[in-house]
Design a binder for these strands. Sequence first.
DNA 1: TTGTATGCGTTATCAC
DNA 2: GTGATAACGCATACAA
Lengths: 333, 333
Amino acid sequence: MKKVTLADVAARSGVSKSTVSQYLNQRFEYMSKTTKEKIEKAIAELDYQPNYIARSLKQKRTSMIGVIVANIMHYMSTEISRAIEDYFNQHDIHAIICNADDDSEKEKKYIEMLRAKQVDGLIIFPTGQNAALYKKMEQENYPVVFMDRYAEGIHIPAVAVNNAEAAYEAAEHLIQKGHEKISIITPPLTISPRIERVQGFKQAMKDYNLPVKKLSVINAEISQVQNEMKRLFEEEPPTGLLAGNDRVLLETLAFFKKESISIPEDVSLIVFDNIPFASFYHPAITSIIQPSYEMGAFAAKCLMKLMMGEKLAEEKNIFTCKLEIRESTAQKQ
Amino acid sequence: MKKVTLADVAARSGVSKSTVSQYLNQRFEYMSKTTKEKIEKAIAELDYQPNYIARSLKQKRTSMIGVIVANIMHYMSTEISRAIEDYFNQHDIHAIICNADDDSEKEKKYIEMLRAKQVDGLIIFPTGQNAALYKKMEQENYPVVFMDRYAEGIHIPAVAVNNAEAAYEAAEHLIQKGHEKISIITPPLTISPRIERVQGFKQAMKDYNLPVKKLSVINAEISQVQNEMKRLFEEEPPTGLLAGNDRVLLETLAFFKKESISIPEDVSLIVFDNIPFASFYHPAITSIIQPSYEMGAFAAKCLMKLMMGEKLAEEKNIFTCKLEIRESTAQKQ
DNA sequence: TTGTATGCGTTATCAC
DNA sequence: GTGATAACGCATACAA
């Protein structure tokens, strides 16, 4: 049960610790065949496993990076995380995923914990609420990449999408189908993508001379979405709806089911984010698709460069969304 | 940019390293108020952050555990992982989630990597293909809990569900609705839950004197599911269908959509696993619901006990599934 | 080609 | 109450 260490291997094979260490680090060049074999034999017999913790302490690298996801319940987060993991796996680097649960306190806790664990870099979906911490990392030149969102005044490289344009395009699509009463529903406007989406929506309405009423833009906690929708459909029933993300969509569908509202007969529906079942749904749901996997892979590559001490060319890296028109948006009757 | 260490704090506050260490470990009992304050001041001024790697090396504990998920694409995996994370978070232990992608080589690599990183314990959804490794951990008395599956001949505590009974109940439900031509579709029978589900299904058919034909049990890779379904519906169209898990369900729904097969008019459908959109789908899909969160929490608690050196009472801990009847199963016309 | 000595940043043991 | 000093398991500069 006692752990076998490099010293044990050295003793067993009759060489010094340094030689064994050389062996472990694949530096066989200046090592006699016989010593190499002796070491191999000892390792096999003892079933020796190197202790990465000790190595990390010495090398000042852990070969671990941290990913702090805003909310793991979003499908997009999962996709991005997978891309990041895939990339770093290829480089024998472990990605530790943490879920901040949209809570800036948790975010702070995780940033501090991961740094205490000496991770070599961080990819963060920032809540935006921890400016001082972000600033500190920026000043220390610690490798960080922001994902999906920016934080004002912080010069940390970010990967995001063209939210405003995408929302504009979605609204335009509804307008061109003859809809005039359109609403957008998002969670509270605490982070940049949501703000940009609402902006894009408003701009489209304005450009097409449609009024943006009070109930045209609804921002509510997920738990309140159904209540807000109830009010919306009682007071100003829209014929077109933009769901600001996947969780809003679930609430919307639940609400529609309860109230027997049909898509697209009663309402045309578009959702932000790619959701696995959107294309199988009855009807298939028109979606604004973000290139999540590519974004994750790109962010990973950026972080890797930072960790190698390189500078990045761009501070903001914007990917383009695609409006995938399916069956949930139809010509207004 | 240079890292500030405990030694720096000691120098700055004019006390010894040991005293600072005491402070960090909250052992103020035998410490004068003034030294305490001096240390506090120095830590604040230097913005000192302890290095957990160094601490771990000394303490031989990392306060990290590993979770090796069979396939993160299953919604159930996500739920279980969350439960595990939640539990360990409360104990200031970090859970590192790894995705074995149903690949025993990856599983092996992750087990070895996590142990090299000195994690204090492991929760594994075993592929079953690494018997030697499992055996070794068992013999070393290393804290491990299996999730969702067993491995024959390995005496490692496991948390799972009553798959056979649940499948039996599901089949029975269809039979009682008048269905006689029923099929079950699962991925290849490489792991215990799938085998048990098929067994339960066959048993129900037998008990009700219904024939189990060749096409009644289909086992296929996810990518082949649609092809196999095509054959099934051409040769022996069933009126009742059991989808073995969430990914099979997605393929099924895609196939149905393509072939304009309606649920429940043409086929009654039941799916294993709880899937977020199942209840919103048109029609809402009858599901065999596993208590994922409870299972994850329970496994976490078991692992914690093992890590504290306690013995576990039970080797197999079986949770009970619940058949939630919704709109996708109807009386046969 | 191999060995010795030292240090990474902590904690633990024991003096004082 | 506080401070030397020795570990923890490994890597590395330098000797031999």
